[in-house]
Design a protein around this nucleic acid. Structure first.
Length: 255
DNA sequence: ATGGCCCGGTATCCGGGA
């Protein structure tokens, strides 16, 4: 089984890349973030033509999440319960017996901003909800754009980023709190290197210079951990014309 | 040569992303 996550930074712009990637990689589930479109604009027909079902929780201009799969998509859930939020950041579904949660975690902008506090509150609500989901679904994967680089290894210049949003101690603690639920960072099961990134700024030739962050993650429950075969960052789409600034992360599990 | 972006909206810049 192959699970993947990709922040596409507008599905309207990136649909050709997504379709090409789906055909080439044939994932069992692809989680998208930042579709930036209402449900009525979501390209169900184009995906169907390529052999994929999809569910979408979208809004105009901002945010928006989707799960795409060639299999039946069951038990669909949107948004965090007990957390009033206009922003569309969560969609979950059961696919081939695995609970797949697609999350677009808040960016936070700057540690002294209201958006940072919203990020921490949102993460606390996520923690509560995932706790409940784990009680109901032993095989669970939490995929998405976390907007958190968990460790200094996951940042191209830890000294320059010290204390900034995306690497701040409180955000990293929230990430570790998720790990504490019995999840693990599947990428780090296979690779301990620094300089392994999933996002590079569009500016400053950051991709060519590998000035990036590892902020897109696939966390898996204890029941899935022994089934993990590989977890890879696919830089191919980042090299295309008009790329997303994020690139896919792909986890392969034993069936 | 060390750095100069990209997206949507209804805009001819601005807010947001990270």
């Amino acid at each position: 089984m192959k699970l993947a996550t990709w922040n596409v930074n507008s599905l309207t712009v990136r649909l050709p890349h997504v379709l090409d990637w789906l055909v080439a990689n044939q994932p069992d589930a692809l989680c998208l973030q930042e579709t930036k479109q209402e449900d009525s604009k979501f390209p169900y027909a184009a995906l169907q033509e390529a052999g994929f079902n999809a569910v979408h929780n979208g809004q105009k201009t901002y945010n928006g999440v989707a799960i795409i799969s060639p299999h039946p998509i069951r038990e669909v859930h949107v948004d965090l319960p007990n957390f009033a939020d206009e922003q569309k950041r969560i969609i979950a579904a059961t696919i081939q017996g695995v609970r797949v949660i697609c999350a677009y975690i808040v960016n936070g902008q700057a540690v002294d901003s209201d958006k940072y506090q919203y990020k921490l509150n949102w993460l606390a609500a996520l923690q509560n909800w995932v706790t409940d989901e784990l009680k109901q679904h032993e095989k669970l994967a939490l995929l998405g754009d976390y907007n958190i680089a968990p460790d200094d290894r996951d940042c191209h210049d830890p000294a320059a980023w010290q204390g900034q949003v995306l690497v701040s101690p409180r955000e990293r603690q929230a990430f570790q709190d998720l790990i504490g639920l019995g999840l693990c960072d599947s990428y780090r099961l296979f690779n301990q290197e620094e300089g392994q990134f999933t996002w590079w700024d569009y500016r400053m030739a950051a991709f060519r210079r590998n000035m990036g962050l590892r902020i897109d993650h696939i966390l898996v429950s204890d029941a899935l951990k022994p089934l993990c075969q590989s977890c890879l960052i696919d830089k191919t789409p980042r090299k295309l014309e008009r790329p997303s600034d994020h690139t896919p992360v792909v986890l392969t599990l034993l069936d």
